[in-house]
């Protein structure tokens, strides 16, 4: 059922191909390596209970209690886990219509989400409605491209966040979609959408150069890809320099395997999205290498360019 799609980075693959001297059993040197597991959801859309058993396509799938059990089981096996959501927590079942998102926030807090970004539907109860529910969240919301300086959201939204895990520093920024046309103006009020690529390049650079992060993740609600000229995660990946991983949303894309695009520096950027409604739990396992062996990887990267 859980078909594993093992996806080697081109970085690693080319290293192996070029330098046979690097032992494949390198991970045996445990002190040199840190493993980090990133779990993520998107567009859960108030799917508190599994889809009803009514013979429909998704019958019995999803549900917060199942997701929590799966997350708990992974946490019991993995030392370093980060849990993110890429927006549209709200809207889709009566739980939202009746309780305004209170239960969604409480359950995500109970599951120990580390951060989330805002989706367009998270404005569905207005800024006031979001402010009311965010009190039930014990995790931060990260949105780097909404200017909220003129409204209350400024007190609860962060532009970036960093985590230091076993000596590895992870930097996260978040991108929201253009609200005009998607959300009534009366709901998003004085929130100003800013060019996501311009903001992304600014904050990824800040995370690398100022915060000295080792790895940069974008929680994106832009959408995976479009036929129109709307900005997508693919556009984002191609336009940035330091973002390593994009955890997407909005387009409800069930990805069989991550998309890999080359960034401005010719390095791979991974894009993943976990469908919607909590039917899937996205999982990214990362291996970090500590110490002074950096040169060989830089070397391999440049060999690729050559």
């Amino acid at each position: 059922m859980n078909r594993r799609i093992f996806c080697k980075s081109t970085l690693f693959a080319s290293t192996v191909a070029t330098f046979n001297t690097i032992p494949l059993s390198a991970y045996a040197y445990k002190d040199d390596f840190v493993k980090l597991t990133i779990l993520h959801t998107n567009d859960v859309h108030s799917r508190i209970e599994p889809f009803p058993m009514d013979g429909s396509r998704n019958a019995g799938q999803g549900g917060a209690a199942k997701r929590a059990a799966m997350i708990k089981s992974i946490r019991s096996k993995e030392k370093n886990v980060l849990l993110f959501d890429s927006g549209d927590i709200f809207q889709g079942t009566p739980y939202f219509n009746v309780f305004g998102g209170e239960l969604e926030m409480k359950l995500m807090s109970e599951m120990k989400y580390d951060a989330a970004t805002m989706g367009n539907h998270d404005f569905d109860a207005g800024i006031e409605g979001f402010m009311k529910q965010v009190k039930h969240a014990n995790f931060p919301f990260i949105v780097s491209n909404y200017d909220v300086s003129e409204n209350e959201l400024s007190t609860v939204l962060s532009k970036i966040k960093t985590w230091e895990i076993d000596g590895v520093k992870i930097g996260v920024y978040g991108l929201g979609i253009a609200l005009d046309g998607l959300v009534p103006k009366s709901l998003y009020g004085s929130t100003i959408y800013q060019d996501p690529i311009e903001r992304a390049t600014k904050y990824e650079s800040h995370l690398i150069h100022e915060e000295k992060c080792d790895y940069v993740i974008c929680l994106s609600h832009l959408g995976y890809k479009y036929n129109s000229d709307s900005v997508s995660d693919i556009d984002l990946a191609k336009s940035t320099k330091y973002t390593n991983l994009i955890l997407g949303g909005h387009t409800h894309t069930f990805m069989r395997e991550p998309d890999v695009q080359n960034n401005q520096n010719g390095n791979p950027v991974y894009i993943n999205q976990a469908g919607w409604a909590g039917i899937l739990l996205g999982r990214v396992d990362l291996m970090f290498e500590k110490g002074r062996k950096k040169r060989k990887n830089i070397w391999s990267r440049n060999l690729k360019i050559e």
């Binding site: 080697k8 980075s9 080792d214 390593n244 999982r283 291996m287 290498e289 990887n297």
Partner: peptide
Amino acid sequence: TYWTDINI
């Protein structure tokens, strides 16, 4: 510190 491997 830098990442060397990824599995999604």
